[in-house]
Design a protein around this nucleic acid. Structure first.
Length: 566
RNA sequence: GCGCUCUUAGCUCAGCUGGAUAGAGCAUCGGUUUUCUAAACCGAGGGUCGGUGGUUCGAGUCCACCAGAGCGCACCA
């Protein structure tokens, strides 16, 4: 239960019943700035004061009286300075809260939202590199989070397996095959993909006998292209698996093209009068040598908030990449989701407005379509920027990163910052086994609790919950209060698509746990296991179990392991 | 030139649909251990929230302008 939401609803009903009408959207029940203020801060006096043109403190004491009359679980109700009502819940409220605490909220099936989330969608021309990792993890954690709060999530990958780059890729693989089979040196001056992974792809194609006759490139290029791409996709899927990611659906651009979806979609836009033949202005700023004014088929994206209209056809008359993408989004819309999320790298941010524009055009502004970008990741090693290898086409792959620091560290750290902020990723820090490493710190909390569970062999089912009343110390009640922030945290994270709130919360909870743990060193009455009162031991273990369940749930949303021992 | 994102403690960053005295970690300084996992804990100092205006009872949060950083800017994908 989210107690803040619960009391907000309760208090709003109370206000309504007593004719305190206002914009209830503005009313909030939140944790106060300082714990000394109590457990809940209710801002109604500030909102009502404006509405009723009265002193907030005066209204505050009226409402405080109403609350006092109706609710018995508050130990203290104060009206404070600018116009807050601060409420402190009795400790027996927290005890019963703990007793019923659950990490999940049941969601009524009818309120489930169908959500499509597209992420990674890296080109099928080679393995994932480190630059893909952040968006990949962000998208995946978001998917986990939305599933956790009860939504129906489809994880989607769009494969750009069509167009020029695929020809170049296929030529490159061909050159590598020639190099292997006929000792023809790989040409470095023809703009081919130089990366070493192409050798691996070439070898696989030879090994699997996917292509045997290499005498005439033109004759086999389509077959070779498909073979090379499916090899590349195998690489990507294996990289994703190493990152703990599995998509539900892979949509192929080539399929959309072969189903003639592009011209069909463009015709829809045409009927909506969003298409015209026109000439784009020369972009300012960066000089383009071979620029020439050109009449092209254009999408009127400026009507939907874009900066310029966008080309749908190239000068040779074929569809642009964007035209295909419009069709892809039409295909998404056709499948009727309640919400569409698209995760992109910061380097594609410039693409965002035209995507939104085409979705708005196709859906008549009805689709809930949101693009999220992830800022770049800067790699560090012991505080120094990490230099990538200079060899052309060589980069740190996702797999190398996972191999170097482990999937837990990669996932946790990639999500540890707001997606809008650039991220420093330090290879050394994330493998340290000290509290400086947040991954370790949270996992250590899990291991500590497990160690207690092992020693006490405590059986939840035989525990008499009435003994929870033995948890009388302030720190224990504070721990329960911290647990109560869990629901709020995931709801906020899910609503705003901000999964970074979860590791922050877990860090905070772990810190409270470690702190609690160490009390026993100063004062043996705080020892959890070595305590004469067996019922108190059980009550404390019950509390630890609930903390563990939150840590486990949180880490499972992040896709990070919660270890039993370390 | 235009667009998107960022600017909060020495460093790296949180900060909820605008709310009370702006929070963590690192670093610095000082304490706690014959351990229920010290791979931990406790304490101290440290701030003109990039700048200037505006909106209002109230702005780190919203708006405008300015400055700095990152990313991107026909037909590629």
């Amino acid at each position: 239960m989210n107690i803040f939401q619960f009391y907000k609803d309760q208090f709003c009903d109370l206000l309504k019943d007593n004719k305190y009408n206002c914009n209830y959207e503005k009313i909030s029940v939140e944790p106060p700035k300082q714990t000394s203020f109590g457990d809940l801060a209710f801002n109604a006096p500030l909102i009502l004061a404006a509405e009723f043109k009265k002193n907030p403190l005066e209204i505050g004491s009226e409402i405080a009286e109403l609350i006092k009359k109706k609710f018995k679980e508050f130990e203290n109700i104060d009206v404070a300075k600018p116009g807050f009502i601060n409420l402190k819940l009795k400790s027996n409220f927290w005890i019963s809260y703990l007793s019923d605490f659950n990490t999940h909220n049941k969601k009524i099936p009818s309120s489930k939202k169908k959500i499509n989330i597209e992420y990674v969608s890296a080109n099928p021309t080679g393995p994932l590199h480190v630059g893909h990792c952040r968006g990949a993890v962000y998208g995946d954690v978001l998917a986990n989070l939305l599933s956790f709060v009860g939504e129906d999530v489809t994880k989607e990958y769009y494969i750009n397996d069509y167009g020029n780059q695929i020809h170049m890729f296929s030529k490159s693989v061909f050159a590598r095959i020639q190099e292997i089979k006929e000792n023809i040196k790989f040409p470095l001056d023809q703009g081919l993909y130089p990366g070493h992974y192409l050798i691996e792809i070439a070898n696989n194609i030879i090994k699997k006998k996917l292509i045997t006759d290499i005498s005439n490139y033109e004759k086999i290029k389509d077959q070779l292209g498909s073979a090379a791409m499916s090899e590349a996709m195998l690489m990507i899927k294996s990289d994703l698996l190493a990152l703990g990611i599995q998509h539900d659906l892979f949509v192929s651009e080539k399929d959309l093209v072969s189903k003639d979806l592009i011209s069909k979609t463009i015709e829809i836009l045409n009927q909506k009068q969003c298409i015209y033949e026109g000439v784009l202005e020369k972009p300012k700023g960066n000089e383009i040598e071979d620029w020439e004014p050109r009449s092209q088929l254009l999408f009127k994206s400026t009507r939907f908030g874009d900066d310029v209209d966008r080309a749908l056809k190239k000068s040779d008359g074929t569809w642009t990449y964007f035209a295909n993408d419009v069709a892809y989004h039409a295909y998404k819309l056709e499948r009727k989701f309640d919400k569409y999320i698209n995760v992109l790298g910061a380097d594609h941010a410039g693409y965002l407005k035209r995507l939104k524009a085409c979705v708005d055009a196709l859906s008549d502004f009805k689709a809930d379509f949101e693009c999220k970008t992830c800022q770049l990741v800067k790699l560090f090693k012991s505080g120094e920027p990490y230099k990538m290898s200079k060899r052309a086409g060589d980069f740190i792959t996702a797999k190398e990163l996972v191999k170097a620091v482990g999937v837990d560290a990669v996932r946790f750290m990639m999500i540890y910052r707001s997606n809008d902020s650039q991220l420093d990723f330090d290879f050394d820090l994330v493998t340290e086994k000290t509290k400086e490493n947040p991954v370790f710190y949270v996992q250590y909390a899990s291991a500590r609790i497990h160690s207690v569970l092992r020693k006490t062999k405590f059986d939840n089912s035989v525990f008499e919950k009435s003994h929870l009343g033995l948890l009388t110390s302030n720190v224990e009640i504070e721990l329960v209060k911290k647990l109560s922030l869990w629901q709020k945290t995931i709801e906020l994270a899910a609503r705003n698509l901000e999964p970074h709130r979860i590791p922050y919360y877990l860090y905070d909870l772990s810190s409270s746990l470690h702190s609690y743990w160490n009390l026993g060193k100063e004062d043996s009455s705080f020892k959890i296991i070595e305590n004469p009162d067996i019922n108190l031991v059980h009550a404390r273990v019950f509390l630890l179990n609930k903390i563990l369940s939150v840590i486990k749930s949180g880490l499972s949303i992040l896709g990070v392991n919660a270890p039993e021992t370390m």
